[in-house]
Design a protein around this nucleic acid. Structure first.
Lengths: 126, 126
DNA sequence: CCGTATCCAAGTCGATACTG
DNA sequence: CAGTATCGACTTGGATACGG
């Protein structure tokens, strides 16, 4: 962490392959059960869903309400504090959309999937 | 990538352990040579500095100007398009600062470094 | 239903040495 | 000076099976 650069703090909290989608669903739908989230994001494993939710919970962005029943029932929602993420997510989303258009202008429709010189060439095939 | 969630696009571009610091220095200082950046961020390796700069260059955020001299001289700067990142970085920075204060309120000064239940416990010792 | 535990593959990053 | 090349440690995420 580099003291002066608080933008890193924001990144650290939002990164994690699934956090943005999870937040997207919770912001859109309000309260959701674990299984509902899982249905909404079919490709995530339960392990990942759990861990990402726990991290968001630690940061007071997501609230976890446990109903002591059998079978268990757990509901997730955005905390009141978590609502303050809205402008940030909005700004990120806007920039992201604009940037996709910009890349299209730069490289054309068939943009060559990140020719990042130093990364592996994924050896074509498949 | 999940179509509806363009915030992911922004994350994808900004992540990379060093990109925020690099941008911070380039935004603050204007044009910088490779070696100046390296001095400003001593812990980064040349490999990492190069790769992060190349990714930013691909996204038209950073411009790379090569002087065909011996010894070589390369200057990096934020492109005009790259300036559009300013509001995003600002918003991220603001949220990051506010969030650090919030965590302090929640967990006190000696906040217990992310008790993320599912991550390894680094087996104490050392 | 809502998770954990375990194991493994892939990716990321750092250290180091070398080059035009 | 400004990189590349190579290797290995560490981290992250996915598959699968099991538990309260």
């Amino acid at each position: 962490m580099h003291e002066d650069c608080k933008a890193e703090t924001a990144l650290e909290i939002l990164i994690g392959k699934w956090k943005p989608v999870i937040l997207y669903h919770l912001f859109s739908n309000g309260t959701m059960r674990f299984s509902e989230l899982h249905k909404a994001i079919p490709d995530i494993t339960k392990k990942m869903l759990t861990s990402q939710l726990r991290e968001l919970e630690y940061h007071d962005i997501v609230h976890r309400k446990i109903y002591p029943e059998i079978p268990p029932k757990v509901e997730y929602s955005i905390t009141e504090y978590g609502q303050r993420l809205t402008p940030l997510l909005q700004t990120m989303g806007d920039w992201g959309s604009a940037h996709e258009r910009h890349l299209k202008e730069l490289y054309g429709e068939d943009r060559p999937a990140e020719p990042l010189n130093l990364k592996k060439e994924t050896t074509a095939v498949q």
